[in-house]
Design a protein around this nucleic acid. Sequence first.
DNA 1: TTGTACGCGTTATCAG
DNA 2: CTGATAACGCGTACAA
Lengths: 349, 349
Amino acid sequence: MQKKVTIYDIAREAGVSTATVTRVVAGHPSVKAATREKVQRVIDAHAYSPSASAQHLEGGQTRTLAMIMPGVQNPYFARIYATAYAEAQAHGYYVWLFQIGEHNPISGELVDELIRRRMDGVLFAGGIWSTRRSGLAEAVARFRHHMPVAVVCPPSMELDCICIHSDLVSCSRLPVRHLHALGHRRIAYIGGSMQLEDTSRRGEGFLEELRALGLADDPAYHVDTGFDAEGGERAVLRMLSGLPRKRWPTAIIAFNDQVALGAMRQLKQMGLRLPEDMAIIGCDNQFFCPYVDPALTTVDLHPEEMTRSAVRELLVAREGGAQSLTLMREASLIVRESCGTALGYRHLG
Amino acid sequence: MQKKVTIYDIAREAGVSTATVTRVVAGHPSVKAATREKVQRVIDAHAYSPSASAQHLEGGQTRTLAMIMPGVQNPYFARIYATAYAEAQAHGYYVWLFQIGEHNPISGELVDELIRRRMDGVLFAGGIWSTRRSGLAEAVARFRHHMPVAVVCPPSMELDCICIHSDLVSCSRLPVRHLHALGHRRIAYIGGSMQLEDTSRRGEGFLEELRALGLADDPAYHVDTGFDAEGGERAVLRMLSGLPRKRWPTAIIAFNDQVALGAMRQLKQMGLRLPEDMAIIGCDNQFFCPYVDPALTTVDLHPEEMTRSAVRELLVAREGGAQSLTLMREASLIVRESCGTALGYRHLG
DNA sequence: TTGTACGCGTTATCAG
DNA sequence: CTGATAACGCGTACAA
């Protein structure tokens, strides 16, 4: 590691002014070939590279978008990040990712830091459980003073920024209707968090849909045990062990595919056959869905599309476009094998 | 979005000097309470926040580590990134992630950019297939001129930096020995890339281990079809359809867990029972391993530990510690159900 | 306790 | 074609 070499060092050693060094670095045409070559040689010899901080100070942009999300270990968010990264790059921007975990509030320190670092925009991504996390609205308000803000999440609370929502109505309706059409009448919903203080919108939508179809919304059919595979295992164990066999649901809708994965394992361990004894539907259309046994029917929220829209709107907003707007993307049902492949009515006990 | 407000604006409006504003922002004690309050009010009113670029210019560090990797969509790398992020944060640093895809060379532009942005260190993470990617050695050399570099990867080529390697001997030996002990004699290796121009070290280690045990290393037992689940499906299809049934292997070692996932699906689709008709071992101990059917036996390279070491060594190097060293972490076999649960010899056809 | 003045590394403007 | 020089926003000696 060398000591810092500045444009002055280069200029002095090459016997030119700093202005000429800048011209050479920038590839400005009005430099005599001989001078250019001489300067370039000194630059190469010292591996000189201008400082982005100094350049930025002088009036440039950072060409950087900040992305705030729970974490990239969740494959759903990994897809969102990767999409944002690619889309931003296509426009000449970088994305800087900040992970805040699933339950922490957005710290004021992080907000400070991103403002200090003069990000060109902020993109927040969250699931149902995190859009109401404490501090979001305040953080958006503070950011908005300095840069445009976009949010990719389910509709949950009013946010004065670019909002790209997934449509929770179709997200709830699609799997319930699918199961109903296949003849299921006792449908359970597991995973997520239905606690009173943070009632899950997706859970609500699910209940509404059940009622609309005249089905029972037995509280015993709702178990909220979180967002991962282990939570899925616990949910099935807790739900079925508390119910006489004849009251068992015939189908389960899981909060997401990881929860479904855990549920399937537990169901098999209890000797149930899938999908004959229990149908199951996940959410997010993760890469492993086609590869589990049986292949998992799931809901796709189209996070990639939503993310691309968010990045684009953010960049448009930078150039004076709308700072505040709302877009909503419908969900799709991806039918595989976990509810039975036959699309007809089945005979259920 | 307001116009940029600088320390001068605050100073003027508060009727003090810029030095006093700095003192207030920094929480310096020697400021009269009345003055502090007056200045703070103006700061709040304008949502003033000092520019990190200007601060950095004045002599500070960026407190930022760059991380370069194929991409976070691969859950193996997502774990590495999340670990680095947490470890860096614990030391007061941020990590900025740069994705370069699985097959692209490291572009000189990216190297330029990170040097320009004055990162405090660079952490490169890659798999076997990417450590020899064109440009790595050159990139390391260029970075090393300006900042310390650490690499988390399998041992592959000599790199003059902080190298945290996984031990490929144990990575190959563990699964082969395990299968051999269970009585398997025809063992296949699928996935990855064994092409001549980029011979996979893990593939080599596997072959060496076979020979050491006096087993056949039939070329028909090696199919390189990439790194994802779909590649695993193709590998099984191609391998088994080209072989008479009695020459089929009795066990498969997959390049990674995703490949194993695809292989399992294809095997089931062909009517084979797992693990009775075919044993299978993956690699990386991904979150889904316990949840597939049968639960997947796999190899853990301990990427979290390696990453933590890399971050720590990077920070030590910044303070004058060793710029170049090599550490190697042994792998572990995680036994689950995909090779049969009984740990005894089996009778194989 | 507060203010002045300079340096940090770069680019842009204007003059030559 | 090239060179001086003034910003850019901030921290920090040093002086008051």
